[in-house]
């Protein structure tokens, strides 16, 4: 997946921008995300329904995948069924 690609959830309002990615299927609410929104919106899998937060970055354990949430929704993000977690950002003082 090319950096900068925007992916939409098939089960909620979530949209992400790909910052980096490897091989694997990016999912939201347990369903594959795509560049287009499907006509019929499903419901999130209860195992992936913790929700996404605007402006947070989500990563996998290996740091291969990094997604920026640009629209929040009810589903939560995973790659091939493994949940992603929020990237801890050490706050920096404003420098410009």
């Amino acid at each position: 997946m090319k950096p900068g690609t925007k992916l939409k959830s098939a089960v909620c309002d979530t949209e992400v921008m790909v910052i980096r990615s490897g091989t694997g299927g990016i999912e939201c609410g347990g369903a594959a995300m795509g560049e287009a929104k499907p006509d019929a919106i499903g419901t999130p899998d209860t195992a992936f329904a913790a929700g996404t937060l605007m402006g947070k970055r989500y990563i996998d354990a290996a740091g291969t995948f990094e997604l920026l949430c640009v629209k929040p929704g009810k589903g939560s993000l995973s790659v091939d069924g493994v949940a992603l977690s929020i990237k801890d950002a050490k706050p920096l003082p404003a420098s410009d």
Partner: peptide, 17 residues
Amino acid sequence: RHANLVSYILGTVEFAA
């Protein structure tokens, strides 16, 4: 490039902080 600036901002600023 957009990629340079996006990387700079994402690396230094937390959204809506």
